[in-house]
Amino acid sequence: MIWAEARGADGRGAIGRDGGMPWRLPEDLAHFKSTTWGAPVIMGRRTWESLPERFRPLPGRENLVVTRDSGYAAEGATVVASLEEAVARTAGVVRGEYEAHLQRLAEDSGASCQDPGAWPARAAWIIGGGRLYRAAMPIADELVVTRIELDVPDADTFAPGIGPEWELVDPGAPRVSKTGLGYRFERWVRR
């Protein structure tokens, strides 16, 4: 799973407000793209609808939208009724192009969380929103989290809690965005 979070009012990780992200962090968008490129992405209906139309579907990735609405249409994406169906559809995906992309990244930079090439290829990435993240926590084996140094007291969508079953294998180096926000990329794996 992959997400970016700031600090919510009650200590929970804030991931959204009013159907969007309450920050501007172009470095995180680039990180998200390079990490998920070539792999299927699984998202809920609200996440799909929050993407600007010009980015729907997310290019270079098979897009799966999870919704209980059997009549829902998401042009350019595959609509599925459940997380389980999405995972089953992506389990056998051939990831040669994705693995080649990750290998190129590994050859271009050092092996850190900043470098998705150092990570094992995933069958698919869960990309939101909050409800889908919580449902997927028991089956996920990796979390890529961007920690943003920002308070969002009026957030309305939150990341799932990361419990003791997870190990922080890369805390990421502190960085500063060209927008002035502090952030870091973390990588967690299931113990």
Rank of each mutant, 00 (worst) to 15 (best):
A6E: 11
G8M: 10
G8V: 07
A9R: 15
D10A: 15
G11M: 08
G13N: 02
I15S: 08
I15M: 08
G16T: 14
G20C: 08
P22V: 11
W23I: 14
A30H: 12
H31L: 01
H31G: 10
K33I: 14
K33D: 05
W37M: 07
G38M: 12
M43K: 14
L51V: 09
L51K: 13
G60Q: 02
G60D: 04
R61I: 04
E62T: 10
G71K: 07
A73S: 13
E75F: 14
A81R: 12
S82K: 07
E84I: 04
E85L: 02
E85F: 02
A86W: 00
G92Y: 02
G92L: 05
V93C: 07
V93S: 08
V94Y: 01
E97I: 05
E97A: 15
Y98C: 07
Y98V: 05
A100T: 09
H101L: 01
H101A: 12
L102F: 12
R104C: 05
L105A: 09
A106G: 06
E107V: 06
E107F: 02
D108A: 11
A111N: 15
A111C: 12
C113L: 07
Q114K: 09
D115H: 06
P120H: 11
P120L: 02
P120Y: 02
W125C: 06
I127S: 12
G128F: 01
R131L: 12
L132C: 09
P138I: 04
A140L: 06
E142R: 15
V145D: 02
T146S: 06
R147K: 15
I148Q: 00
L150G: 04
L150W: 02
P153S: 01
D154T: 13
D156Y: 07
F158A: 05
A159V: 08
A159C: 05
E165D: 10
W166H: 12
W166N: 11
W166E: 06
G172I: 03
P174Q: 02
V176E: 14
K178H: 09
T179Q: 07
T179S: 10
G180D: 01
G182Y: 03
F185Y: 14
W188S: 10
W188K: 13
V189A: 10
R191D: 11
